[in-house]
Design a protein around this nucleic acid. Structure first.
Lengths: 185, 185, 185, 185
DNA sequence: GATGAATGAGTCTTCATTCAT
DNA sequence: TATGAATGAAGACTCATTCAT
């Protein structure tokens, strides 16, 4: 059902997708759909929740714990970018439609997103602790946010970036810019 | 009318705002509104178009042509961030609702957005030409995109960044990260 | 519109009547119907309100102010019964469906009904004051309620009373019972 | 099951009560409920039928056969009022919802109601035969109907009468008015 | 030009009823 | 026999759009 909703939300957006369409695409009747949900907004919430969990789970699996320091950060960035690429449609839907969530549900989803940022922060912090990076706490936090946004950017500016770069190129370029900045040396 | 629409779209989103509400907020009758537009989507288009122009215009005014090289880039970033901060609501609306534009209109808006990126690119390129930065064309392009996205990020992740930083702090931190990267030395 | 609703409510009851049917019967479109009302319950409220006013107005016109004492009470009863007979369908609808009103509206309608009872009370009281009747305040109040209920009874037990009596017979019999009671002597 | 239905119908009315709710309140599953009934209307029929029988049975038990003449009528009125008071909720439900019965079932219920009236008639007739009352057949019939309606009135105008009188006061006042009428002497 | 009453297709949601297990 | 998941027809209500005045 969630898969069906993602498919439709991706194509037409949340508001333009009807509950009937979701039911049909799910293979349920409209009545059955409403056995499982209370309102259309619930579907959006379930969708966002499921997507977030899927992103997180996939990311967990890809994180390479065999490397350390800068290498572990690089590998985390690559893993994140790859996961977002794999779940492109889902992430885009979450990005574009989560604002339609009722306030409470939105808060909950944002908290999950914060958890995501925290994961990246951890990796950066480790590098700081090891002495590989010299960053203030603010810089760590903002850097983590930047990395996540650049991952999302692969989807929400896809008409620019995906037309121009392969995922590998994008990953390499961004990794470079993130780590070294524009100002080389 | 556009102001009215922006106000309402910001509060409730495009789909949840009715044409009646827009008419009322504009001080027009619904009949008169439809003298100026052909469909509700037209309003969104006009809104996006107007916002883009306003952003561009404000940016132009703020760009400091008295400085050169890295300083001109820094000042351009600060100017951009300030403009986006000033037009926060508008930018957010454009960000969240432009996906609801009909294909053609969306393309048009995206082109304008590309123009925006091009402006930033120009500033970076100049630094490259002057030898202040050593960057490939791909890096220039992506860097420009990153800068714009980080400006927008000030609005679309405002619940994180605006809670944590003042605009000046945010600008300084981001400028630092953009220019020097995480890897300091 | 109210006429249409009464007709339909009478035939099928409030709950079995659809807003579409009301719109159609009124000669409005469903959209236009909702220009005038906020919800289906509003229609019921308007209907009840209108019926009450019509009953009251008709009653006012029929009240004979040329007679006094017992005669004025008799004439009031006859007038009341006649009015209820004329507005039979309307009264029945109000009787059967007013319980579906939202609490607040119900309270309002009941107040109007109390006003009706008060009118009858006045007539009885006058007789008491004149010395034609010897009744406690409680008896006056309850008697007035009884008279109104017996008027309504002409509609809500019509399958019994209207099959057996003409309105005149019913009026005469009830007037007799009301005034003299079962116990004649 | 019937108890459950009465409880719910009283709270929310027939139309606003769902079969699921009735099943739940009864402790049955919805499937099992439909083993016993054919449609939702059947429940209403069963409810009305059961209520009627209960009223009749209770009344039978209360009727005092030790008194005669006017006293037996007085005692019958008091018994009826007491029974209706005891079964207030049930009677009210029957009163308000029986109109939703399918035609045939309604006819059946009305016949049972007629049986009720006949019981009262019998008591009055006995007084007439004994010479305690001097009434035409029409007056007997209508008087019996009035008595039943005044009993019901204790429930359907409860917001007026139950606020103002205790059951004993109401019984005494009504008995007085019924027997002696407004016109005392 | 300006108005706003009228339209009706389209939306979400409910709920009586069925039937495979 | 008892269950409760599944059904889908039907209902209340919304809102973009039109057009007579």
């Amino acid at each position: 059902m969630i898969k069906a909703a993602v498919t439709l939300f991706k194509q037409k957006g949340f508001h333009r997708t009807t509950t009937r369409e979701i039911a049909k695409e799910s293979g349920f009747s409209i009545g059955t759909l409403y056995e499982y949900i209370g309102s259309k907004e619930d579907i959006l919430y379930l969708v966002c929740d499921a997507i977030y969990d899927e992103v997180r789970e996939n990311l967990m699996q890809r994180l390479n714990h065999d490397v350390e320091g800068i290498e572990s950060l690089k590998s985390a960035i690559a893993a994140l970018f790859k996961v977002i690429d794999d779940l492109q449609d889902e992430v885009l839907v979450m990005y574009q439609e989560s604002k339609s969530l009722p306030k409470e549900a939105l808060t909950y989803v944002l908290q999950k997103e914060n958890g995501m940022v925290a994961m990246i922060e951890e990796v950066i912090k480790e590098c700081v602790v090891r002495g590989d990076l010299h960053l203030s706490e603010d810089e760590v936090k903002l850097g983590a946010n930047n990395i996540l946004v650049q991952a999302h950017m692969w989807t929400f500016r896809r008409w620019v970036v995906q037309n121009k770069y392969s995922l590998e190129e994008y990953t390499d370029l961004q990794t470079n810019l993130i780590l070294k900045g524009l100002l080389k040396n």
